[in-house]
Design a protein around this nucleic acid. Structure first.
Length: 480
DNA sequence: TGAAATGTTGGGGCG
DNA sequence: ACGCCCCAACATTTC
């Protein structure tokens, strides 16, 4: 038998627009498909629970696609560099191909792997595919990375248009060499004793086909109203592709091209899809940030924030996590997250501001919670988002930008539909009071069946006071 | 990808 | 008729 190519799947669990797979298939060599569940190399940033659930489904779907082509997706756990090298040796691979990482942990795994493969005399080739552009491509004139989104996006757009996405290779010679393999079950990616994944199953199809369906649905209509609808959490204005982009069941380039092609085909042109494409560029910006500032997930990029007087309070943190803060829009968001593994982006900003400014709990606590509970948990997006909302990032909201949860709710959930959906104990309150039930007249509360402190908590902090305290804390930071 | 505080303007009530 | 005041509406500044 010809020497196979070992295809190490990472966050690229798809067949379409997969440069490493395409290159491997092109030569006609047999391809051994391998996925390694490696928690150790990522340390405290090993995948969280919700994204493990999503991963399980994506692996099953990919395994099925590989099986349909005569092969078998080999599943292993352990240090990826060790496992990949040992499988490469066992199958006498000619080469190992994979999709490149951009986070510091993945990059060091790759460096160790390259060294091991070098010793074995096996070719090692890393391909793009996780991002549309490489982070090294989009730099300022002086070679420094951009620190502000707008100029980054301008420069990003000014580059040559990306290549069109690659189709699924017509012929892929996936091999089944009878290698020992875990199963998706033995990898224990899904919850068992308390099965909290019911809401996730109802929401997501974690497969390449699921991603394709979402993309098609989105481009059939919602994309044209994206700019108008995206900020209203009760509307289905977004694509919901984020978990697929995080795990690679769709490529960002495919999404980008599909949007542009649809704009073209319907005679609308680029501006019609820019608000949506812009979100893809934000993702590129986040990964550029992480690539150039590898401490992004753990340390504030504005170092003075190391000295910020946080107010750590486990009781308040738990109330936030459980969606029992007494601020309906915050609680709705946190419960949507818990139930579905996803939260509307506008609401992510509101709950983030509430945690870091109103409760003055360190942004890393929020980042951790999101990391564990989001199906779309993405190291760069998550870290950048939390640093942004806390005011310590490089293109961050100024420290004094404190969201008022009631005003935000009235503005972006004017009828209260979002709150009604996720905080059912308030569902019968009229829109006038639903975002601040503590101000509602007793009779209104009674008619809606709301008993503050019993059926729904009173606010755990007073926003007016918390806001002033946060500003004082920031002032203390500035004067040193 | 804010919100609150403060300043300005102009219409209208009223002595 | 006039000046004064109030205050809503809007703009600007500040946090």
């Amino acid at each position: 038998m010809m020497q196979p190519i070992l295809l190490w799947f990472t966050r690229d669990l798809r067949l379409a627009d997969h440069p490493a797979l395409d290159a491997a298939a092109r030569g006609g060599d047999p391809i051994v498909a391998l996925f390694v569940l490696d928690d150790a190399s990522w340390g405290s940033w090993a995948r969280g629970a919700a994204s493990r659930w999503f991963l399980a489904g994506a692996l099953e779907a990919l395994a099925s696609d590989v099986r349909d082509r005569g092969g078998r997706l080999v599943l292993r756990r352990g240090r990826a560099d060790e496992v990949v090298a040992s499988v490469a040796r066992a199958v006498r691979a000619r080469a190992v191909f994979w999709t490149r990482h951009y986070d510091p942990w993945g990059r060091s795994v790759e460096r160790r792997l390259e060294a091991r493969l070098g010793e074995l005399g096996v070719e090692a080739r890393a391909f793009p595919g996780f991002l549309i552009r490489e982070p090294q491509e989009v730099l300022q004139r002086d070679g420094e990375p951009y620190r502000v989104f707008t100029p980054f996006s301008r420069a990003w757009l000014a580059h040559q248009p990306p290549h069109p996405p690659l189709p699924v290779p017509a012929r892929i010679a996936f091999a089944d060499l009878g290698l020992p393999s875990e199963t998706v079950e033995t990898l224990a990616l899904r919850p068992t004793k308390p099965d909290w994944a019911r809401g996730l199953r109802a929401c997501w199809d974690p497969s390449e086909r699921g991603a394709e369906a979402l993309l098609e649905r989105f481009l059939e209509g919602p994309v044209w109203n994206y700019a108008r609808d995206r900020d209203f959490p009760a509307r289905a204005g977004g694509s919901r592709l984020s978990p697929h982009l995080a795990i690679g069941t769709v490529s960002p380039r495919r999404v980008y091209w599909a949007a542009l092609a649809r704009a073209e085909a319907t005679g609308r042109g680029f501006p019609a899809v820019w608000p949506f494409v812009r979100q893809l560029v934000w993702r590129e910006f986040a990964w550029s940030n992480l690539f150039h500032f590898p401490e992004l997930p753990d340390r504030p990029l504005r170092r003075e924030f190391e000295a910020f007087p946080w107010a750590i309070d486990a009781r308040l943190l738990r109330a936030w996590q459980k969606g029992r803060t007494g601020y309906p829009i915050v609680d709705a968001g946190m419960r949507e997250l818990w139930t579905t593994g996803w939260m509307h982006n506008r609401v992510r900003m509101i709950v983030g501001s509430f945690l870091t400014k109103d409760l003055r709990i360190p942004w890393q606590e929020g980042e951790r919670w999101f990391w564990d509970t989001l199906v779309d948990a993405d190291l760069a997006n998550n870290a950048m988002g939390w640093q942004w909302v806390a005011g310590c990032g490089i293109d961050a909201a100024p420290y004094f930008r404190i969201f008022n949860p009631v005003l935000q709710a009235k503005k972006f959930d004017p009828e209260g539909d979002y709150v009604r959906r996720w905080v059912p104990e308030l569902a019968r309150l009229p829109a006038a009071w639903i975002h601040e039930p503590w101000k509602a007249p007793p009779l209104v509360l009674e008619e809606a069946g709301v008993r503050l402190g019993l059926t729904y908590p009173p606010p755990i902090v007073d926003h007016e006071i918390a806001r002033k305290e946060a500003l004082d804390a920031f002032a203390a930071l500035r004067t040193g």
